[in-house]
Structure formats: structure tokens, C-alpha cells
């Protein structure tokens, strides 16, 4: 995979991992709308949620869900906080290996942090012109990896969607869009 990625990167006109990450690294803050679709054999039809995403370099990612019921999920450092109404629960991300790969991968990408990405994932990049797809496969240290693959698609310095596939066949697809200028 890595070899393939490197080969693709070598084609001069396409974006390289470094140039993509450099684009992200320039940006200190990000704010987008998202819609998320969860596909599972438990669910009759895919579950849709939507809201906003906020990113502050280097490591604060907030998922503010508005529909169907408002709640906030804030990852900051090793801390994951869930706020729902008056309730607030915090936990250490490192205590929950089933959650950390996605959040860490996303945050490292948004921060343009290649070292962290390479430490935690096997990276595969395919790019054509401005369009690119970054495949992150967790360097599984556990016996039963929860995630099979994380895929981030983008165009230039913008992420368009994030999809992840779990070992049990469940899939989550998150589509991002620029918020309407207010």
C-alpha cells in the first residue's frame, strides 16, 4: 500500500501527502457542516444525524450534533467529553481503543501532523489532480481491531467526506460541506 502511495505521489502533477498536509497545517481553525450516515445490520434503514464540526489546531475537535437530538462530543487532547442537556461526561480517550483511531486520525490529518499519522496508521494516498483519497489503516496492536479502514476524501485543502468501515461490517459515512456564510 505504502509503496503504491509513494508511487502515486511521485507523479508530479498530482498532490502529495506532504502538500495536502501542508495545506491543512496552514489552517488553525475549521468549521463545517456535516451529515452522518450509519449503516448497520441492526438498523432497518441508515441512521442519519447532522450538525457542525469545529476544529482548533492542534487537537481540539468538536462534533456538535443538532439532529435528531442536540448533543456535543468534544475531543481535546486525551479527553473526550459528551454533553447532553445538563449532563456532561468526560473520559480519557486512551481508555477507549475502539474510539481513539478515528478521532486521532482525523485530528492528525487536520493538524497536518504526518508523524502522528505514520505512527498510528498505514497510509495510502491516491490523488488525481486536486482530488485525493487518503486511506488510513490502523496499525493494529489489539487482537480484534474494531476498525478495518478509514478513508478521507478531499479536494485540495478541503475534506469532502470521511468513511469508516468496522470489522463487523458496519459503516459510517460523514459528508462535510461549507457552512452557509452568515
Amino acid at each position: 500500500m505504502w509503496a503504491l502511495g509513494a508511487m502515486l505521489c511521485a507523479q508530479a502533477q498530482d498532490l502529495t501527502l506532504d502538500s495536502i498536509l501542508a495545506l491543512f497545517a496552514q489552517r488553525q481553525h475549521g468549521h463545517v457542516n456535516y451529515t452522518e450516515e450509519v449503516v448497520s445490520d441492526l438498523l432497518e434503514r441508515p441512521l442519519h444525524t447532522s450538525g457542525e464540526l469545529f476544529f482548533d489546531a492542534p487537537d481540539r475537535l468538536e462534533k456538535r450534533t443538532l439532529k435528531p437530538s442536540p448533543q456535543q462530543l468534544i475531543a481535546e487532547g486525551d479527553q473526550l467529553t459528551l454533553v447532553r442537556g445538563r449532563h456532561r461526561a468526560s473520559m480519557r480517550l486512551s481508555d477507549y481503543p475502539q474510539l481513539s483511531p478515528l478521532l486521532n486520525g482525523l485530528r492528525a490529518t487536520l493538524a497536518g501532523d504526518r508523524a502522528t499519522l505514520e505512527k498510528n496508521f498505514q497510509i495510502a494516498l491516491s490523488a488525481r489532480g486536486e482530488d485525493w483519497t487518503l486511506g488510513l489503516q490502523p496499525l493494529a496492536s489489539e487482537d480484534k481491531p474494531v476498525y478495518k479502514r478509514i478513508e478521507i476524501r478531499g479536494n485540495g485543502g478541503d475534506i469532502q467526506n470521511v468513511s469508516l468501515e468496522r470489522s463487523n461490517g458496519e459503516r459510517t459515512l460523514m459528508t462535510l460541506s461549507k457552512p452557509a456564510e452568515s
Binding site: 444525524t49 450538525g51 435528531p68 448533543q71 462530543l73 459528551l82 475502539q98 474510539l99 459510517t172 460523514m174
Partner: peptide, 18 residues
């Protein structure tokens, strides 16, 4: 339960819900 845990399901999966 679905509505309350919706935002987490994308992250945690639905195993617990079963």
C-alpha cells in the same frame, strides 16, 4: 435510545445497542 446515542453510534458502533 437511538436519538440520544445517535451522535455516538457513528463512533462506537451499534454493538451495545443490540
Amino acid at each position: 435510545a437511538m436519538s440520544q446515542q445517535g451522535a455516538m453510534l457513528g463512533l462506537t458502533g451499534t454493538e451495545l445497542l443490540t
